[in-house]
Amino acid sequence: MNPTAEQIQKINHFSKVNIDLCAIIASVVEIQECEPKEQLLTEGDTGDTMVLVFQGQVEVSKNMMVKTASGFTTSRKPIIRLETTDPPPAKDPETEATVFVVEAPAFGIGEFSLVLDNAIRTAHVNATTPLKYGILSLEDFTTIVMDHPEIGGAVYFEVAKSAVNNLATASGDISNLTQAFFFALTR
């Protein structure tokens, strides 16, 4: 079953796209379901698909090397949770959130795959509630953009905004890590 054009337009990246064009995108997306704990994306993998979440909650996490009492170890650290509001998740999350939960009517994950061929996934994404989602492949999207170039402008602008935000955050992280590094060296 395909999602509706309205469901596609609820996703931030497609909010500026005309409803008729959203219907074209919807036509290439198949709605799927999964259970909590199922992993949608794995950090380090390459992929050319964007995940469109229509209902449910996911947790985004990253592998981090941390020092513990027994030495250095790699542990998976949750970064953020994303939750749909229209409709809200069918069930409460199985585990309590330890990080901030961002709410949106619906959301997309892995948007860089709409631009890059074989983009590397930068984080793990797991379902924390029963999930209804769809997959938009780079190939399908490129074909649609070729036929309807006006979709490209709106979507690529949102992807670029997301990339710039990520860049600003990364720049802040590098600055913080550099300061912490020199601070630790002087202690």
């Binding site: 020092k67 650290k77 970064i79 901030f100 992280d173 600055s175 913080n176 912490a180 630790a184």
Partner: peptide, 19 residues
């Protein structure tokens, strides 16, 4: 500035190292 994840990790790790 930066992501809360990195800020918290820096604090945790420095604190754990007694700094």
């Amino acid at each position: 500035s930066g992501s809360p994840l990195i800020r918290n990790m820096i604090k945790e790790q420095l604190d754990g190292a007694g700094i």
